[in-house]
Design a binder for these strands. Structure first.
Lengths: 201, 201
DNA sequence: CTAGCATTGGACCTGCAGGTCCATACGAGG
DNA sequence: CCTCGTATGGACCTGCAGGTCCAATGCTAG
C-alpha cells in the first residue's frame, strides 16, 4: 500500500495535488482535464499515473482530502477558541472575510457538487469534514455554557448543526448570487439565537 | 424563435424534459448521457436535436427551468400563506416531509453544483429561483408583522435570507450525510429567531 | 561502480458521447 | 387525395480525454 517515495517523488506528488486543487477551485471538477493539471504543474502523463495509479479518481480523492483539511485550517485559531462572545465574533468575521476574498473559487463547491457522486471515498471525506466542523462549533457552545454565557438548556449539537447549515447554505448562495448577504444573515441570526437560546432547546 | 410545434410535437418535447429531469435527479447531471434520456423517454437522437437544436446545453436549460418551477410549486399552498404560526409550522413540516421523501434525488443539487457552471442561462435560472423563494418568505414575515406576530424592527429580507440559507445548507448536508437533522435544526432555529426577533434586526 | 528501483517524458491507443445527416413516416389543410 | 412541413429513426462521424506502454534517465545504497 505505502509506495516507496523518494524525497523528490513526494514533492512532485504534492505539487500535483496542490496544482490540481487550485485548478479545480477555479474551473470546477468536471471542467478540469488531466492535461490542464499537467500543464499547470509541469508534469507528464507518466508522472500522473505513476503517483495516482487509479487515475483521475484517485487524484480527486487526494485533492478532496487536501481541501478538506484546508477548510478547517483556514478558520484557526478562532474555531478552536470559541470561549467568549468577542471570540465568536472574530470567527464570524474571519469566515466572512475568507469567503468574500475567495469568491467563486470554493473548494466546497468542488467537493460537494461533483466529487461526492463520483468517488466513493470523496463522499466520506466531505462527511468527515462536516462532522469535524460541527464538532468544533458544538465544543465552543459547550464551553460558553460552562462559563454561563449560553443557557444550559441549549442543545449544543443541534445549535451547531443549524449554524453549520446556515454557513453551508450561505456559501452556496454566494456562489449562485455572487453576494455575501446570505452568509452574513445566517451567521448573525444563528449567533443571535445562541445568545438568547431561541429555538435551540 | 418560436418553432412550429404540433400538439404531438409539444407532447414529445415535454416528455423529453420531464424524463431528462428525472434522470438527472437520480443520477446527477454529469452522469446522464443523451442516450439515457432517449432510453427513458423512448425517443431517438433525431428527436432530441429536433426539439433542442443547441443540443445538451439547451436541454439542460429547459430542465433547469422546469425543476425550478417545481421546487416552489411543491411548497404551495403553504409558502404563499405564511399568515400565522401554525401556517409557518405547516410549511416547515412540508419541507421536511418533502426532502425526507426525496432523499438524494434533489433537483437543487443538479441545478447548483453543475449546471450553474456550464450553461450561461442555468445560473440565471437558479438565481431567479432563489430570489423568488426568498421573496415569498419575506412576504410572510411582513404579513406576520402586520398582525403583530413578529416584532416590527425585524428586517424581513435579512431574516428571509438567513432562513433560506439554512434551508439550502440543510438540504446540502442531507445530501452529504444522509440525515435530515441539519435541515430540521436550521428551520427550527430560524423560526425561533423570528418569534423572538433575535439577530434579525 | 553498479544494480535496481524510482522517476520522467511522451507517443499511442481506444471507447464513448455529443453532434450531423438523411431517409422515411405522419398528418393537417387545401 | 395530394402536398408540404413536422416528426421520427437510426446510421454515421469525430474529437477528445482517460488510460496504457515503454524507453530513457536519475538516485541511492551496498
Amino acid at each position: 500500500m505505502t509506495r516507496a517515495l523518494t524525497r523528490k517523488g513526494a514533492a512532485t506528488r504534492q505539487r500535483i495535488v496542490v496544482g490540481a486543487a487550485a485548478e479545480i477551485r477555479e474551473r470546477g471538477v468536471e471542467e478540469v482535464r488531466l492535461e490542464d493539471v499537467m500543464a499547470r504543474t509541469g508534469t507528464s502523463k507518466g508522472q500522473l499515473f505513476h503517483y495516482f495509479p487509479e487515475g483521475k479518481e484517485e487524484l480527486l480523492l487526494a485533492v478532496a482530502e487536501h481541501e478538506a483539511d484546508q477548510v478547517l485550517a483556514d478558520q484557526e485559531p478562532m474555531l478552536s477558541n470559541l470561549t467568549s462572545w468577542p471570540a465568536w465574533q472574530a470567527w464570524r468575521d474571519r469566515l466572512i472575510e475568507r469567503y468574500l476574498a475567495q469568491g467563486v473559487k470554493c473548494p466546497l463547491n468542488a467537493l460537494l457538487g461533483q466529487a461526492g457522486r463520483r468517488a466513493p471515498g470523496a463522499q466520506a471525506v466531505v462527511t468527515g469534514l462536516m462532522w469535524r466542523w460541527q464538532g468544533k462549533i458544538a465544543e465552543g457552545v459547550r464551553q460558553m455554557q460552562s462559563t454561563g454565557d449560553i443557557a444550559p438548556e441549549v442543545d449544543a449539537e443541534r445549535a451547531a448543526a443549524a449554524l453549520l447549515a446556515g454557513i453551508q447554505g450561505g456559501v452556496l448562495l454566494m456562489l449562485t448570487t455572487g453576494k455575501i448577504d446570505h452568509l452574513e444573515a445566517a451567521l448573525d441570526v444563528n449567533l443571535g439565537s445562541l445568545r438568547t437560546g431561541a429555538g435551540t432547546t
